[in-house]
């Protein structure tokens, strides 16, 4: 048990408390990173309602919905993984984490398919933008923000997948037990952040204005 205790901490509970608080603080900074982009999105949407509604209609609602389902399911399975390690079931915990990572990869692939479709439709500003019409300019601002926001989110998913694979390997090697599983819990917190950001992205970008 004490093998995991760094020398500057007094006891394992203190170390765990520090690690968890550090992660929550990190999540607070992440919320602000995405907060700026979502604020910019709201301001621009309010300025150009027509162009942004048009932009939303050009996104792929079906793929976006599947991605949402995939991500939410992965979050649920990650929570199962945490529960399993608390019950000392290393093997099924490892399996749950691997499935979570696999769903993360699935999310990235689906999102990549969206990007490819958009390339063919000419919806990527400055790279290939073939729209014209009255709202084409403000729709371009929509797609700028769409790429910055979803791009940054996908980057977080990618980092999360790598993190989960490392944790899965450590679980397989038996590094974690009901007495010590802080890294696993921290990875789970990070994965929830990725989930929650998407919960704001999906209605804001895909759903809003889609039916208008």
């Amino acid at each position: 048990m004490n093998a995991h205790l760094a020398e500057h901490f007094d006891d394992p509970p203190q170390q765990k408390e520090a690690a968890m608080l550090g992660m929550w603080a990190f999540i607070a900074t992440e919320v602000l990173f995405f907060g700026v982009l979502l604020a910019a999105y709201i301001v621009c949407r309010w300025r150009f309602p027509a162009g942004f509604a048009d932009g939303s209609r050009h996104t792929d609602l079906l793929l976006g919905s599947i991605e949402t389902a995939v991500l939410l399911a992965s979050g649920c399975i990650m929570a199962v993984g945490l529960r399993e390690i608390q019950l000392a079931k290393q093997r099924s915990a490892c399996l749950a984490i691997v499935i979570t990572a696999a769903l993360g990869v699935a999310f990235l692939v689906l999102h990549g398919m969206e990007y490819v479709d958009e390339y063919h439709e000419g919806l990527i500003p400055t790279v290939r933008y073939l729209q014209n019409g009255t709202d084409a300019d403000s729709m371009e601002v929509f797609f700028c923000l769409y790429y910055v926001i979803t791009g940054l989110h996908s980057l977080h998913v990618l980092i999360g997948v790598v993190l989960l694979l490392v944790i899965a390997e450590r679980t397989r090697r038996g590094h974690f037990s009901p007495h010590y599983y802080t890294p696993l819990e921290i990875a789970g917190l990070y994965w929830s952040l990725v989930d929650i950001v998407w919960i704001f992205v999906y209605p804001g970008i895909y759903l809003a204005g889609h039916s208008a």
Binding site: G51, P125, T126, S138, V141, C144
Partner: peptide, 16 residues
């Protein structure tokens, strides 16, 4: 990349 969030000529907002 010419992303136009702050660029008035692309409809963006420099005051933002």
């Amino acid at each position: 990349f010419g992303v136009g969030i702050f660029d008035p000529s692309l409809g963006g907002d420099p005051v933002l």
